[in-house]
Simulated assay, not measured.
Amino acid sequence: MFHVAFHTALIATATTAPWSINTAIVMTAANLFAIAIGYYAIQKRGVGPALPVELPAMFTGFGLPELLATMSFGHLLGAGFVLGLSNAGLL
């Protein structure tokens, strides 16, 4: 019985749109949105190691942990956006 249910679940999975410039734009926008949220939501910025590049003054105290956290969140948001938009037929 499990074998049949597993195959049914595989057949019922959503198909996503192939990679395109629109998919990249959605993912980039989701990551920028997550960075903006993280900039205001992270209370203790700059506690960990700093980034090895110069950033604009707006990102003062925005280090490696903050970058990894916001980009991880951005990729989760982006995956949801891409799946939702492709299932709606907009991507």
Rank of each mutant, 00 (worst) to 15 (best):
G48R: 06
L76E: 04
T23R: 00
I11W: 01
A29S: 10
W19K: 00
A41F: 11
L32F: 15
P52H: 00
G38C: 10
M58T: 09
P56G: 10
Y40W: 12
G48L: 02
P56W: 12
F2D: 12
A36D: 02
F6G: 11
G89T: 03
M1G: 15
F2W: 07
A12D: 07
F33H: 08
A30L: 01
A79G: 08
V26Q: 00
A50H: 03
G74F: 04
K44Y: 14
L32M: 15
A9R: 11
G78S: 05
G78E: 08
E66S: 13
A41W: 10
A14G: 07
L76M: 12
T15M: 12
L77Y: 02
P49Q: 07
A14S: 08
L90Y: 10
M1P: 13
A34C: 08
T13L: 09
M71L: 14
T70E: 09
A36R: 10
G61A: 04
L51F: 06
I42Y: 00
V53P: 03
V82M: 06
L67K: 03
A41V: 07
G61I: 03
S20V: 12
F2C: 08
E54G: 09
I11A: 09
G61V: 05
A34R: 08
L85T: 10
F59W: 10
H7R: 12
L77F: 05
M27P: 05
P49K: 15
K44S: 05
L32I: 02
V82T: 04
H3L: 09
V82H: 08
L77C: 09
M58D: 05
G63R: 04
P65E: 05
N31P: 01
G63H: 02
A79H: 04
V4M: 02
L76Y: 08
E66C: 12
L90A: 13
L51I: 12
T60P: 01
S86V: 11
P18Y: 12
V53W: 06
V53E: 06
F73I: 15
L91F: 14
F73E: 11
A5P: 06
L83K: 00
L55W: 01
G48A: 04
I11N: 05
A41I: 07
L64P: 00
H75W: 09
A30R: 02
I25T: 03
L64K: 09
V82I: 11
M27S: 08
H75M: 15
G78N: 06
A14W: 04
F6C: 11
L91K: 11
I21H: 12
V53M: 10
I37T: 05
E66K: 14
F2G: 14
H3W: 07
I21T: 14
S86I: 10
T70Y: 05
Y39L: 15
N87D: 09
H75P: 02
T8I: 03
Y40T: 13
L55H: 00
S72M: 07
F59T: 00
F33C: 07
P49G: 15
S20G: 13
F62I: 07
I35V: 15
I35P: 13
A5Y: 06
S86T: 15
I42P: 01
L10C: 07
P52F: 08
T8G: 01
T15F: 08
L85S: 13
